[in-house]
């Protein structure tokens, strides 16, 4: 009888232990997914390989080398023999090991005079509530303190084919020490269709240009200052042209995307507040659609169909 009693206890304890282990595994997986490598930069080492390496980081390398006059182009985004030769020659001229392998040292050498030591006109942390506004067209990041302009930084934004996501976001993640293309600090944004953020860079020449893969690049010194001021939850509005974004099909709760951002902005302009234009068809957007439907005596469904598109002049 006593043996049976212990057996029961053992089973219960084993079950508890197993569930704790499972919980830990799930937690670890969640944490891992949170720290997924962003889409906007690559920290990989570039070199001549079979098959040939391709990608936007190769294009950035080519464009920078063309700019410095050490490569004649064109910039195809393929790390081929010609490019490797040009890299090797460049490394030799900068007293680096001429191996054709592009790592942090080579990127730093490519930065040349656009070095990390640029003065930042450092300021103390503002006292008011901080919000950030990024103007894609003027390539600036403005820090507001209680709605007043506090400081403005130059930034680099996404190129036309990989634009910086327009919308009203929040900082959801802060981290340090990623290095390489991400510079010294990373501030992740809650963009639902990819991993984007504000970060430092090892390509300081790209600040003021539209060359990134969608992220916002800052000089390392600038991003370090900004990093020390803001907390997770800080609002970041990215302003730019959204006229090219097509809003099509029926939009229903749960959807995410660029078209939802545009739809939310249009809803707000029409006087029905969906909250922040964060690209998520969530409860506030549902409520805004319901208000529109109630105002015009349409069936109140919270779903945006052709009728709502007609009223919002999207059709």
């Amino acid at each position: 009888m006593a043996k049976n009693k212990f057996l029961f206890l053992k089973v219960v304890l084993s079950f508890l232990l197993l569930s704790m282990i499972l919980r830990f595994v799930v937690y670890a997986l969640e944490v891992k997914s949170e720290f997924k490598v962003p889409d906007c930069e690559s920290n990989r080492i570039l070199q001549l390989k079979d098959p040939l390496m391709t990608g936007y980081d190769v294009i950035e390398l080519e464009e920078r080398m063309i700019e410095l006059g050490v490569y004649s182009g064109p910039a195809f985004g393929v790390y081929d023999y010609r490019l490797a030769q040009a890299v090797t020659a460049f490394q030799g001229s900068k007293e680096l090991e001429p191996n054709g392998i592009v790592g942090p040292e080579t990127w730093n050498a490519l930065a040349g005079e656009d070095s990390e030591d640029r003065p930042t006109n450092a300021k103390p942390r503002p006292k008011g509530k901080i919000t950030l506004t990024i103007h894609v067209n003027s390539r600036t990041l403005t820090v507001y303190s209680d709605g007043e302009v506090y400081k403005r930084y130059p930034i680099g934004v996404g190129k036309a084919s990989t634009p910086t996501p327009i919308g009203e976001w929040k900082i959801v993640h802060k981290s340090t020490g990623w290095g390489g293309g991400f510079g010294t600090r990373w501030l992740g944004l809650n963009i639902p269709w990819g991993i984007y953020g504000i970060h430092g860079t090892n390509k300081p020449w790209s600040i003021g240009r539209a060359e990134s893969h969608g992220c916002i690049r800052m000089h390392n010194k600038d991003v370090e200052e900004l990093f020390s001021w803001i907390t997770v939850g800080t609002e970041v509005d990215i302003i730019g042209d959204i006229s090219h974004i097509q809003v099509k099909d029926n939009l229903s709760p749960g959807r995410t995307g660029k078209d939802i951002v545009k739809f939310q902005m249009i809803l707000r302009e029409a006087g029905f507040n969906p909250g922040r234009a964060d690209g998520r068809y969530g409860q506030q957007t549902i409520d805004a659609i319901k208000s529109l439907q109630r105002y015009y005596s349409l069936p109140v469904t919270g779903i945006a169909g052709p009728d709502e598109f007609i009223l919002l002049k999207l059709k």
């Binding site: 779903i303 169909g305 052709p306 009728d307």
Partner: peptide, 14 residues
């Protein structure tokens, strides 16, 4: 049963 028409009533009117 108007439910199947929800979301496209105005479109059908127009």
């Amino acid at each position: 049963e108007p439910e199947p028409f929800y979301g496209k009533i105005l479109h059908l009117m127009l």
